[in-house]
């Protein structure tokens, strides 16, 4: 096996394939780069920027991949009764986790996912001003796209890891360590042919103006202050990625949804328990 690693999606993307298959790695990184270019919150040339600039109600041309992610995000929005909402961009800008896009007024961007319409495979429409952030789902999708690219090149086994959200394919089992909210690793799993994603915010939160600010927004748009790590194992990485956000905010809802998604939830053990 050999691995390559590049800085992409704001994190480190590592691709591992069998010896002799390194030629396929370029296609996999290209698939990840494409997701970054189309779905970046920061890039003014992304599909998200085009949707932000368009007047509400206008049809906007976007890539097929962006439509795929938006469709999946809207399905999670409906299934979670609005808990998973990609229009939290304005909250994240307000709390300093994302930069304010040029020309935007985050205070006025009050649209929700219910205001997003998928017109067709290459067009969408936003019926209210909004700031969409795909940070809770696009990384997982990028991992899935990289795996599809490797498989299309005939690679029979491999692993794609985007900063801890990863998917592995082939018959062999892969050792996976779980990093707890405090940065330590106490547990590990052995997984084959599935995806895993984790979230934590112990080290990524701040107290400002009388309340906690975290990059995870939950029930009633309140920041989620999680005690520990939340890990989801699912058949694909987009599901695992999105479900970690739901599980952090509402554990019971996550259990209910995971039953139909063939997913599993692994929470960080409470401190004081033996290890």
């Amino acid at each position: 096996m050999l691995s390559r690693c590049r800085p992409l999606l704001g994190t480190f993307v590592e691709i591992t394939v069998p010896d002799g298959a390194e030629i396929a790695i370029a296609a996999a990184f290209a698939a990840v780069s494409h997701v970054q270019e189309r779905m970046s919150f920061h890039e003014e040339t992304s599909d998200l920027a085009a949707m932000r600039r368009a007047p509400p109600g206008d049809k906007v041309a976007v890539s097929a991949e962006t439509v795929a992610v938006l469709s999946a995000a809207l399905a999670f929005y409906r299934q979670s009764d609005g808990l998973f909402d990609i229009t939290i961009g304005s909250d994240l800008v307000r709390d300093g986790f994302l930069p304010r896009p040029p020309g935007s007024l985050p205070g006025r961007c009050r649209g929700t996912s219910a205001d997003i319409e998928i017109v067709d495979e290459l067009h969408v429409r936003c019926h209210a001003p909004m700031l969409i952030d795909l940070g809770g789902i696009a990384k997982g999708y990028a991992v899935d796209q990289a795996v599809r690219a490797l498989q299309a090149q005939g690679v029979i086994a491999g692993l794609v890891n985007a900063g801890g959200d990863m998917r592995m394919f082939g018959h062999e089992e892969w050792p996976i360590m779980l990093r707890d909210g405090d940065g330590r690793m106490r547990e590990h799993l052995s997984l084959a042919n599935c995806a895993i994603a984790s979230s934590a915010n112990l080290r990524d939160r701040r107290w400002r103006l009388g309340r906690w600010r975290t990059p995870h927004i939950g029930v009633n748009r309140a920041p989620v202050v999680a005690r520990g790590r939340t890990t989801i194992v699912a058949p694909d990485c987009m599901t695992a990625d999105a479900m970690t956000k739901i599980a952090m905010a509402d554990r019971a809802l996550a259990y209910a949804l995971l039953a139909s998604l063939s997913g599993q939830l692994f929470s960080e053990r409470q401190r004081g328990a033996q290890h």
Binding site: T16, D165, W174, M185, S198, R229
Partner: peptide, 17 residues
Amino acid sequence: FKLNQDIPNISGATLSC
């Protein structure tokens, strides 16, 4: 590296680049 003895893969809060 051989599979199963490879460098373990770590899942946790996302690292920033």
